[in-house]
Design a protein around this nucleic acid. Structure first.
Lengths: 353, 353
DNA sequence: CTAGCGATCGTAAACGTTTACGGATTTGGG
DNA sequence: CCCAAATCCGTAAACGTTTACGATCGCTAG
């Protein structure tokens, strides 16, 4: 089992293949490892001259701290775990990439794990295995309410933060998110300002926080404007579903003045259903999407949509988590999405539906 | 600096907050830690009865190995590093997610790092910092040739594998990838079979392996069929660029019979340029894309495109890497993409361009 | 000249494992 | 009955750090 691979044939010249340790540095510098440790952690009690010399040697021989050893003795770590659902959907992936980015810039490594369907088991298992990789805190990207529930029920030694739109915090799980309800409001208000009064919603899945919250924003904006919420059809984010639902609308002759689609993909399917039946966007119907996926500016027509600021979200949420890890308290300001106006929504004309 | 947080107020009842160690298990089981270690690594020399009892206790008190300690003493690890460029593009992200997935299923944790523009420095730094998180091997997703070059020039103690389409292996860097050239051939051949002879290529960026290789496949397929390669315009993958290039084509009256677009996003922009000018796809021009991004089946028209099998790719490449980590040799069979036929390419009619 | 003090440094123990080795205890054969 | 072998298990050392503490040195003050 313990086959020595790459055994160094010669033994005389020490500084060959082995990774240099703190002791090697100390020996070369003619000091004790304690001193080296002090300069590493830039602790006091070491003379400038010595510090300088040790630093130089560290650079020369390419010494780098062994994280395992450090983690073992300090039991604190400089890495954070990210738990995500496996879906390659726009929101989660965007968040994930942004998270890695800012964590790295703050000097934290990230280890990511994704979980599958029966969340009750998989989430706890993932949290555990993240824990024993030695992360100091965990951010979970939980777009699905089932998944979030599993997180709430899970136990975890390290600080836990959840990114879930509109979900509430519990004593042991911070929750943080972009204000997607606001995004939905923005979209709907835009439609209202354009003069539409009959504004439908092609909703996302109600299994997703994002779906729930966007729907809520649509409703709220309408009510605020004194309008009755129009048709609301709940789907699964997919272009296919939206396409078929759109077809149905056309068949039934129930085409609204405007629709707020819960995602750009939804808008895509819907627009195709309209296009195939001679219903023109935005001339006959206005459509606004949500996400600003790549290429949405080149849909036919270019899509008016809502963009989230994943970087800001990631920035804030790692800030919060690292704060929790270090025992600090960080105040969290919500992140606001923005409306991107393009060509898929237009002023109402003198048509009826 | 060392503020004791969450200090346990009571001290009498031991098994409270501290994470159980191998010693705790041993004590409860009435054996020595050596025995526990043996059952953990299911080594021989422990009686079935004892093994059973220890296992039970481990489960009961929720003991879990401390990875830092293990890594420290064995200097081997059960985690792999993933280095990626920061781009949230379709290919890299798909690969990334798939990689995490299969690694996890093989019992490996993954820690990911992404790198930014001046690759000469950032790649080596990232490799190093991955190294001292204790990964046993590294997979780098290197779509950009600059980045790959940096990887080739970098030094790394642990096995290094690169996923880069059509790039060659070096002594210390395995290279592995999907056969995208084949994918491009498939797309082009499809167009040829449809009767087209004037087949242009809206290429991706030549800074990307993917761009290079897809172009090569297009050329090869054409030559094999005895056809002269048509117009080839190199771009940057973006819908915007394709849109503008498409507009130019229309202005110049140089619309080809068919075009193989290097990505679905490219196809998207191109199709819009056509659509805005009354050039119908596929009636006037056939278009096939590459990627099969989500929603491409709901473009106008639904896009004929090429799909890569990221899961298979991830499966093979982690297999290869883990093999290298364990000193095994794994033979690598190439992964083949597949053509997805939809509605954006049609049989040639009696039109001229 | 010496006590005492700062500044600088060395030392030992600990973190939780693995691994090589050696010590019991049992077993079976002569 | 005794000895050797087999079986099971305990022990010590090591991995590379950090941290608390103790040691040394040179000075200054009395």
């Amino acid at each position: 089992m313990a086959i020595p691979r790459d055994a160094n044939d010669r033994v005389a010249d020490a500084p060959l293949r082995r990774k240099p340790t703190i002791n090697d540095v100390a020996q070369i510098a003619g000091v004790s490892f304690g001193t080296v440790s002090r300069v590493l952690n830039n602790a006091p009690d070491v003379s400038p001259a010595t510090r300088e010399r040790v630093l130089q040697i560290i650079k020369d021989i390419g010494y780098r701290r062994n994280r395992a050893a450090t983690a073992l003795v300090t039991s604190r770590s400089t890495s954070i775990g990210i738990l995500s659902d496996g879906s390659p959907r726009f929101g989660p992936v965007g968040t994930l990439m942004a998270l890695e980015n800012v964590a790295r810039k703050k000097g934290y490594a990230t280890t990511v794990i994704s979980v599958d369907k029966p969340y009750e088991d998989s989430v706890q298992a993932a949290l555990d295995s993240l824990d024993d990789t030695g992360v100091g805190g965990i951010i979970v990207i939980a777009p699905l309410v089932d998944m979030a529930a599993a997180v709430w029920n899970a136990t975890c030694r390290v600080p836990l933060e959840m990114i879930a739109a509109g979900a509430s915090s519990t004593p042991n799980v911070f929750t943080y998110s972009e204000n997607q309800e606001l995004g939905a409001r923005l979209a709907t208000q835009h439609l209202i300002e354009l003069g539409h009064t009959d504004i439908a919603h092609f909703a996302g899945s109600m299994d997703w926080f994002d779906g729930r919250v966007r729907k809520r924003g649509w409703e709220a904006a309408l009510r605020e404007a004194g309008l009755e919420p129009g048709l609301c059809i709940e789907g699964d984010w997919s272009p296919r579903w939206a396409y078929e639902a759109g077809l149905q609308l056309v068949r039934d002759g129930r085409i609204p003045q405007a629709v707020f689609a819960a995602s750009d993909h939804t808008a895509l399917g819907l627009i195709r259903a309209f296009a195939e039946n001679g219903v023109r966007v935005p001339d006959d119907v206005s459509v606004v999407g949500f996400d600003d996926i790549e290429g949405s500016d080149f849909f036919l027509p270019p899509l008016t949509t809502v963009r989230q600021d994943f970087t800001a979200l990631a920035l804030m949420s790692t800030e919060v988590l690292i704060g929790a890890m270090e025992g600090r308290e960080v105040d969290r300001t919500p992140i606001a999405p923005s409306l991107i106006v393009r060509n898929s929504a237009a002023r109402t004309t003198s048509r009826s539906n």
